[in-house]
Amino acid sequence: MTVHINKPATGNKAKRILPVGHYRGLGAWTVFFFIFLYLPIVVLIFYSFNANRMVMNWGGFGIDWYIKAFQNDDIQKAVWNSLIVATVATVFATAIATIGALVLARGGNFRGKTVSLGLITLPLMVPEIVTAVAVLIFFSAIGMNWGLGNVIIAHITFCIPFAFMPIRARLEGMDTSLEQAARDLYASEWETFRFVTAPLLMPGIVAGSMLSFVISMDDFIITLMVGGAGSTTLPVYIYSMIRRGLTPEINAVSTVLLFFSVAIVTAYWIVSNKSQTKTVH
């Protein structure tokens, strides 16, 4: 038998041995990572309070640009457009995704299940620019020109998978014996859905609609390509502002939009975390 005790090179006893799987520097790396991730956001917010006309020349603290942005008619119009598009797209996408998810999670195994799943998640796989081009060509080919309507239809399409995923995850995490118990206790199919499945599914539906709302609010490239002159949404308007010149007004509008998204995602996070703990116990 061979003995293979490999003594450490130095007799430095003070050196603490890290537990297996731990590595030095991971924590520092992670801190650096989060700085990289959040620095731009912090910078953006910071400069939105710049009183100067130029973004990068600090001219003292001021909220003038917020006031200016709120009074800007074009921004107001863009905000309205964004809200209309996001609301309508979310309602439709969530409804469509919910019944789709019910079929795919509760319909057993059937021919075409994989294909259906692939189709619903297709908008996630295709690069946004390709979707944008395809939809633009399509509308022009059939001569459809409903202004904001075109934008809404495009948004419904790419929001479906975002609404679908949390709803399906929720359904698959749900104990089917609950539904069986309801059926066993003389509930009709409709009653089972109404009193058992739907209430349990609600957090998934809320989460799905929040995600699709955020995605729709934030979309830029598809709206830019598909939307016409009258259907400028907030991100598209911000883009045009950037092209015109960098003023802190962009930062101010962006900061508002940013907080809006963060608020919704935080709400989503709380809802989904809550529903997780609920299912566990």
């Binding site: 003995v3 293979h4 005790i5 490999n6 003594k7 450490p8 006893k13 050196k15 041995i17």
Partner: peptide
């Protein structure tokens, strides 16, 4: 004869 307190698991026979 060896104290193994300062050895990684991979260094212990």
């Amino acid at each position: 004869d060896d104290e193994i307190a300062n050895l990684e698991p991979s260094q212990r026979p």
